[in-house]
């Protein structure tokens, strides 16, 4: 099973069911809060305040922020060109000139790791904007709000799409579409003078995001749908309807607001998943291509006892960066969850 990059649980039925159950609870939560005098604001500020109190989580947020900002500035802060090979100095251990050593082609590992983090950062952003989230929310809103046959069609389609052996289809999907898209994007790059779309792997992650969305939107859609069903029966929607608000307005203003909290929790908890997806994609053979550094490929090429024994720096530094990032995302996801769903605490 391919893990969902955004952590918005996809095909696993438990996950869907639990999302649903959970959403009911947070729905209660919201409704409860709605009855309070200060209304919505207090809910958010309370959650944030709960989050502030978690020291480890705050440390992790700082680390994540540091890594994101640092990596986006990587061309300015790295000591070497990440592509500059040096055949006389391959596989050197850490030294003053190369604090993380050099890789198999004699390139500076510190630079490569920093740029690798940058790749991950770009990917997390691309993927979050990618299909699963958007498609899931839209489908869920439609399904929940319109009901009847629309609901039935969407739900049945979702069951079909989420029953596939994803990796298989994803691979076929990618191998069928990538060459065509690559040609198109190359033409686009030539026409516009941009040159980073392919090199940064944005193209690949766009394709993958769409591919994953096709097979993975259902979990999110069910979550949203459950939430909408909850809200539909609540009084303020009825009131909105009575006052003649349009469907779009109701969806946008009232319901979207209701599902934001579970959404934030999902996204924050899923960030590590997004980061990790890069490794999976390398494995499928569609990730970022050299010479663009990728932590995924570094782990991949060097995750062996032989490397650990003979050239440990090749694996330990990238692993360190990945583990730190995953750990911070995990802690953050955990903390955000606690903050937004205090009852489970």
């Amino acid at each position: 099973m391919l893990p969902d990059r955004s952590g918005l649980s996809t095909r696993d039925s438990h996950a869907e069911q639990l999302d649903w159950a959970e959403s009911e609870l947070s729905g209660d939560q919201l409704l409860e809060l709605d009855t309070q005098p200060i209304r919505g604001h207090s809910y958010w500020s309370l959650a944030l305040r709960r989050l502030y109190r978690k020291k480890l989580a705050m440390v992790c947020i700082s680390i994540i922020a540091f890594m994101y900002v640092g990596s986006l500035l990587s061309p300015l802060i790295t000591p070497y060109d990440f592509r500059a090979v040096d055949l006389q100095n391959t596989r050197q251990g850490p030294s003053l000139a190369h604090p993380f050593g050099t890789d198999r082609q004699g390139r500076d590992m510190l630079t490569r790791v920093i740029f690798g983090v940058r790749t991950t950062v770009i990917i997390t952003i691309t993927s979050l904007l990618g299909g699963t989230l958007v498609l899931g929310v839209v489908m869920g809103l439609m399904s929940g709000y319109m009901g009847r046959w629309v609901d039935a069609v969407i739900m049945r389609t979702g069951e079909v799409t989420s029953s596939f052996p994803e990796i298989l289809l994803l691979l076929i999907f990618v191998s069928a579409f990538r060459p065509r898209l690559l040609t198109a994007v190359q033409a686009f790059e030539d026409a516009t003078g941009l040159d980073w779309i392919i090199r940064l792997g944005v193209l690949d992650f766009m394709i993958i995001s769409v591919g994953l969305a096709i097979f993975g939107w259902f979990g999110m859609a069910r979550l949203v749908r459950g939430q909408v069903l909850q809200a539909r029966e609540s009084q303020y929607i009825e009131a909105a309807l009575v006052t003649g608000a349009s469907t779009a307005h109701i969806l946008r203003v009232h319901m979207l607001r209701n599902i934001l909290s579970p959404l934030i929790v999902s996204v924050s908890a899923g960030l590590a998943g997004v980061a990790g997806a890069e490794l999976v994609l390398s494995w499928i053979g569609v990730g970022v291509f050299p010479p663009t550094p990728s932590l995924g490929r570094m782990l991949f090429e060097n995750g062996s006892p032989q490397v650990l024994l003979n050239h440990p720096h090749l694996i330990l530094f990238p692993i360190g960066a990945v583990t730190l990032l995953f750990f911070c995302f995990n802690i953050l996801g955990d903390a955000v969850n606690d903050a937004f769903n205090p009852r489970t605490r």
Binding site: S9, V265, A269, W283
Partner: peptide, 21 residues
């Protein structure tokens, strides 16, 4: 339970990456 699911995905991930191997 749901809290656990999301992290679970991550761990899967890590495993799957693995597959990448």
């Amino acid at each position: 339970f749901r809290l656990l699911i999301l992290p679970a995905m991550l761990s899967l991930l890590v495993l799957v990456l693995a597959c990448g191997g």
